[in-house]
Each structure stands twice: as structure tokens, then as C-alpha cells.
């Protein structure tokens, strides 16, 4: 039989070098419960030159939260881009409808089309978080993935239960940055811990890698300035972050930045850059008490640290928050063209 000569790729030496892959960050949050999760996701998308958002999930069971995350991705990456579906925890807590999500999602253009489009119309348009996390981490080299948690630990703990995920997290994740708790020993429980105390305890006890925790005290010390919403986001006539911020509470107000700080620290950690804004505590172990309060015990062998604001970098940190959160979308596609959504819309 005669062999067909197929066109062969040029030898490796002749090919142009592939651009280096950006470090990847996975973001899990209780989107809809607090405004800082919106700003944290904005900071990650705004850092597109340094990191790539490799996956997004919501720890609550609200479809609207997933739809908003989907809309955020489209806004920042451009409508024609492809990105992974949003993970949603069916077993997560069901939050009351949030105006900060409903308002931007409900905005219509003059042509009566959604201003911020989303493909999430039913649970089928979302994915199971353990699968989304796994698929995201498989795109990362050993130790190079970073995870930001800005919600109850519900979905991350469940993600660990998937066969092989614990090993994958251990192998491919550098650090989990968790906006969870109050440090070193919080007088009151962080609502994100209280929302699922059992999951928080398991997260700190079972997570197979280092955790940097960001406490409520840091979020209060470095509030996101409400004035930034009118000053920095006006480049777009409609901006999902600005719309959500305005809908969350009566303006003007400054917002605690626990999740934003986690995102900002994660960008630096993922890229290995000098930590300008924060310092880390000595290593130790975080324990979650029955009532949801967190307690930090120093110990050289501990895998936990908590984040501390550098007093002299307060203004710089807040400046970084506002400039990254309000950054214009990436000018060039991160991936290939978005596929047609063949499954949507569906008739019942």
C-alpha cells in the first residue's frame, strides 16, 4: 500500500516560540452577598496583563450569581471570546435575590437587549464546581495555579471530594488565598465563616497546600473608596461593577475590601512579584471555633498565614484596588473565538 505524504509541521527550531503562559487564578465567591466579591473579580480581570482568570465559581446556589459572573467575563474578555462556564454549587446556600446582581442584569439597551449579556439561563448553563476547578487546574503547571476564595468554603470543600482533586490541588496549586476569618483572633465571626462553619473548619484542616487567609480586619482597614465608582468607571456608559456597587447600598459609601485584598495579593503571589502592599504573618494553624470565630496559633510547621496590611502602603493598596478594578478590558483576545451557543436558547 502506498503511503500518503501528509503535510508536516516545520521542525521545532523553525517555529516561532510560543508565548509564555500567564499564571492562572481561579476565583470562587459568594457573589451577590457582598460587593467586595464583585470588585475582587474586577481586580483579577483588570490584571489581564499579568494573570489569566482560569475559572470562576459561586459558592451559593443562586443562578443570578452565576449569570452575573458570566456577564462580567463577557464584559472584560469581550463578547466574542470563549471562557469556561461558571461553576455553581447546587448544595450551596440560597441567598435572597440581590439588587446588586438584578439591577445590572436587568439593564436593557434602547433596542431592548440586555446591556450585560449572559448565557446563563438555567442550571444547565452552569457547571459543577469540582469539575470547573479540576479543568482549570489541569491547565496549570505544577505549583503555578492560584485560587482565591471570597465566600463560604462550601464549594471548595466539595471540590476536594472529587476523586483526584485533592492530589491535583496539591500538585498544581501554589497557594489558596482565602478571604475568610478574622485575625489573629477575631472577636466576632466572619459572616463568610458563619455561613458554613463546617466547611470552613474542613477547609483549614484538609486543604492540601498553603493558605493565606485575609481577615475582616484587613478589609475594614483598607476600604474601597465609593468615590472611585463615579470617578474611575465613567469610561464606560454602563459598567457592571459600577451598576452593582450603586445597587448594593445607598451611595455614597466605602466598602470593606476583604475579598479585594485577597485578589490583589493573589495577583502578586501568582506572578512572584515583590509584595508592595501586604506582609504575611509567621506560619501557623488556623482553627475555626464552633461559633465561627477563627483562632490563629503560631507554629513553624503550620501551613497557614494571614495577611497584614503594611501601614505605609495603605494609599498605594487602595490606589491599586481602584486602578485594577476599573481597568479597561483586555485589548487582545486571550483565546480563540467564542463558539456559537448551540444549546441556547431552549424552548421548555
Amino acid at each position: 500500500m502506498q503511503e500518503i505524504k501528509l503535510p508536516q509541521p516545520p521542525p521545532a527550531a523553525a517555529r516561532p516560540p510560543r508565548p509564555a503562559q500567564l499564571p492562572g487564578i481561579f476565583f470562587d465567591s459568594d457573589m451577590g452577598a457582598n460587593i467586595d466579591a464583585v470588585l475582587a473579580l474586577a481586580v483579577l480581570y483588570g490584571s489581564y496583563a499579568k494573570v489569566k482568570v482560569i475559572g470562576v465559581s459561586v459558592s451559593n446556589a443562586n443562578l443570578q450569581a452565576a449569570a452575573f459572573c458570566d456577564a462580567m467575563g463577557r464584559f472584560y474578555l469581550g463578547g466574542a471570546q470563549y471562557y469556561a462556564p461558571v461553576g455553581l454549587s447546587e448544595n450551596g446556600r440560597k441567598l435572597p435575590e440581590a439588587a446588586m446582581l438584578a439591577k445590572p442584569l436587568g439593564l436593557k439597551s434602547a433596542e431592548d437587549k440586555p446591556v450585560f449579556s449572559s448565557d446563563v439561563r438555567s442550571i444547565l448553563d452552569t457547571a459543577d464546581t469540582p469539575i470547573v476547578l479540576r479543568n482549570a487546574l489541569l491547565t496549570q503547571k505544577a505549583g503555578e495555579g492560584t485560587i482565591v476564595s471570597a465566600g463560604p468554603a462550601t464549594s471548595l470543600v466539595r471540590a476536594l471530594s472529587m476523586p483526584g482533586n485533592k492530589e491535583l490541588v496539591a500538585a498544581n496549586t501554589g497557594v489558596l488565598v482565602a478571604a475568610l476569618g478574622s485575625f489573629p483572633n477575631g472577636a466576632a465571626a466572619d459572616p463568610r465563616v458563619k455561613a458554613d462553619v463546617s466547611a470552613a473548619r474542613r477547609l483549614f484542616a484538609e486543604w492540601p497546600g498553603p493558605i493565606v487567609a485575609v481577615g475582616t480586619e484587613l478589609g475594614s482597614a483598607l476600604p474601597y473608596p465609593g468615590a472611585s465608582i463615579e470617578a474611575d468607571f465613567s469610561w464606560s456608559p454602563n459598567h457592571p461593577v459600577a451598576e452593582a456597587y450603586r445597587a448594593f447600598r445607598a451611595m455614597p459609601y466605602d466598602a470593606p475590601s476583604q475579598a479585594i485584598a485577597a485578589a490583589l495579593y493573589a495577583v502578586g503571589a501568582a506572578t512572584g512579584s515583590k509584595n508592595e502592599f501586604f506582609q504575611l504573618s509567621e506560619p501557623g494553624t488556623i482553627e475555626v471555633l464552633e461559633d465561627g470565630r477563627t483562632k490563629f496559633a503560631l507554629g513553624a510547621s503550620g501551613r497557614h498565614r494571614y495577611l497584614i496590611a503594611k501601614p505605609d502602603a495603605r494609599d498605594a493598596a487602595i490606589k491599586a484596588y481602584t486602578s485594577l478594578a476599573s481597568a479597561k478590558p483586555a485589548p487582545t483576545p486571550q483565546r480563540g473565538p467564542r463558539p456559537p451557543q448551540a444549546n441556547a436558547p431552549l424552548k421548555p
Binding site: A84, P85, I123, L124, A127, D128, I131, N135, N343
Partner: peptide, 8 residues
């Protein structure tokens, strides 16, 4: 029958 996205 449609499953959730990314169903293995």
C-alpha cells in the same frame, strides 16, 4: 437530555 455544562 441536556446535562450541566462540562459534564464528563
Amino acid at each position: 437530555v441536556i446535562f450541566r455544562r462540562e459534564t464528563p
